[in-house]
Simulated assay, not measured.
Amino acid sequence: MDTKQLNETSKFLSYVLRHEPQAIGLQLDSEGWADIESLIAGAAKDGRTLDISLIQTVVSSSDKKRFSISDDGQRIRAVQGHSTASVNLQHVEKEPPELLYHGTATRFLESILQQGLIAGSRHHVHLSQDIPTAIAVGQRYGKPVVLKIEALRMHQQGFKFFQAENGVWLTNHVPMSFIHQDLAQYSARSDL
């Protein structure tokens, strides 16, 4: 399997397991699980060739650990990032570290400065535990900038935090009073 096939399959799985399962007639349960055989059949109707081996390779080779296969090997889900209303993953509440980071593009800063970080179409705001990961996330959307989040102080004031299986931190909203822009020096460096 080549890298291009793995990347395309990963993007397809993200699309149907996070956002549009109905695009291929797939049903997700409230925890985001889909039957792998139904996924393969739905993909075939969409003109995509998937098999269990390809799916397992995508799941195991993903450095971001976006997907999880059930213990019995029959079901698959995205571990976070859902926008579909039928999924409501029950993450365990956890105390966050003192600081977390949010990678975004400079073009979104004005909106963030007005309303803080909001989940938008997703169920949660996604936060990273380290700056390089936040930079990589921000680069997906344009010229990256990293925002420092006072996560522990938020938690102490009643905000709930969760951690997905892949290590991504999740919360519902980050008000501006907990966001610091003083990490602009970490934005887009060509040596990263």
Rank of each mutant, 00 (worst) to 15 (best):
A44N: 13
D29A: 05
D35H: 02
R122V: 10
Y15K: 05
D2Y: 03
A41M: 08
L117H: 06
L127S: 07
G158Q: 10
G116K: 07
L99H: 04
I36C: 11
N7Y: 15
A43Y: 00
V87Q: 10
R107V: 14
V87T: 04
P21T: 08
V145T: 15
N166A: 00
R66L: 04
I55L: 10
H102C: 13
S83N: 11
L109M: 15
R153E: 10
L89H: 01
D2G: 09
K148E: 14
Q90H: 07
F162N: 01
E37N: 10
Q156A: 01
H126A: 07
G120S: 11
G73S: 06
N172E: 04
R140C: 09
L147M: 10
F162L: 07
E8I: 04
Y141P: 03
P144Q: 04
A119S: 02
S121G: 12
T104V: 12
M176I: 12
D191V: 10
F178S: 02
D35M: 07
T171Y: 03
S177R: 06
H82R: 01
L99K: 07
Q156L: 05
L54C: 02
L147V: 08
L17D: 02
M1N: 11
N88M: 09
P144M: 09
W169C: 05
D130W: 08
D46A: 14
S68D: 15
V174K: 05
Q74N: 10
L192N: 02
S128F: 01
L117T: 07
E110W: 10
H124D: 14
H124F: 14
Y15E: 04
G142S: 13
S190Y: 08
T9N: 11
Q115T: 14
E150Q: 12
L17K: 03
S61Q: 12
S70G: 01
E37M: 04
H123F: 12
F161S: 11
A41K: 11
